[in-house]
Design a protein around this nucleic acid. Structure first.
Lengths: 190, 190
DNA sequence: GTCTATAGCCGGATAGAC
DNA sequence: GTCTATCCGGCTATAGAC
């Protein structure tokens, strides 16, 4: 009834929502089919396997992040501006696709054939982020605490945005970028 | 061969490790038995069900957190000291049981009978945390940004410690408490 | 306390009619 | 493009021997 392309997008979107709620392994093809309103066997006219669904959801986002941080690193701005740009990127990509972000964060270990490629992208992302932090410390803009703790702390918050953003119905993106950057960069104490 | 009590502790500990790696649903009783070095059927001499394993892992920690934050709230100290005490509690409990923390964070939705009790404990914890933040804002110690964003940001980092602490073989707990409190409270900019 | 064997159910995926 | 029917393998859990 529906066109293949629309239906496939609907399947991927619904799958991402279910993966967020229960995790990849706990979602069955029958669960997914029910949520879409068709029978499990019919899913296979649009996708080849459950594994392919996970892979498409994850890499659509992972590649955006990798490209985005390369642009930020290339900017001729100071470390503080680069960190704010990273915060903005996380907020923008998470707001666009919060359930996909959940899969990226929580279900990557269930990737099979493309697990190595995922790990490569993630390591590349963290390497670029680390460069920004180390440069900021060398130039005296950022505190000389362990860059590992700094990286862990900021990235933990950014990676968890998917838990928080969908609850804000009327998301004021620019305000969130300003407020969260302020908290992460300047702290919470008056 | 082994005593029931030792074996049960070994099973719970091994299960927590496997749950961290793949999530509750993707870990089979055969996986767990293999990792312990016995056959799947033998697990049932020590535990009643897979569900009971998850429940015991999660509530052992969840109750510690709930009790701990009640003590912190009751302290006669300012908001900054209370927040540092919360950071210290998270670091201590995570260092004691990092894999259990993973289950607490990622697998709680697979609780069946005791899901409501879990949600009650979690809501109580967040309520106490929110009280600390709101009091700190009213007394002028903490910035007047949205307390929701502040809470989300700090709690995201603390809840992700389980990903980071096990990688630090020679964890210097007191130093980590100082450094992470500094970053979360005072920010990263010089 | 551990084993082998197996019950009974549910998982992903395919075949073929419409 | 969706359906019914089904394969077959893997799942949790139990029975009963040692």
């Amino acid at each position: 009834m529906k066109q293949t392309k629309d239906r496939k997008a609907e399947i991927l979107q619904t799958a991402a929502l279910l993966f967020k709620q229960k995790g990849y392994s706990a979602v069955t093809m029958r669960d997914l089919a029910d949520a879409v309103g068709i029978k499990a066997a019919s899913l296979y006219n649009h996708i080849n396997s459950k594994q392919q669904i996970l892979s498409e959801i994850i890499f659509a986002i992972a590649e955006d992040f990798t490209e985005g941080i390369e642009e930020i690193v290339a900017q001729e701005t100071n470390a503080q501006a680069k960190l704010k740009a990273v915060v903005a990127q996380h907020i923008t990509l998470t707001a666009d696709n919060p359930y996909g972000m959940a899969a990226l964060n929580n279900d990557w270990m269930h990737l099979e054939d493309r697990l190595e490629y995922y790990l490569k992208l993630r390591n590349q992302y963290e390497k670029r982020f680390r460069e920004i932090v180390l440069n900021g410390q060398q130039s005296g803009q950022l505190k000389n605490v362990s860059h590992e703790i700094l990286l862990f702390s900021v990235l933990s918050t950014l990676r968890n945005l998917y838990l928080w953003i969908p609850r804000k119905a009327d998301l004021q993106k620019e305000k969130l970028i300003d407020d969260l950057s302020e908290i992460l960069l300047q702290g919470v104490v008056q």
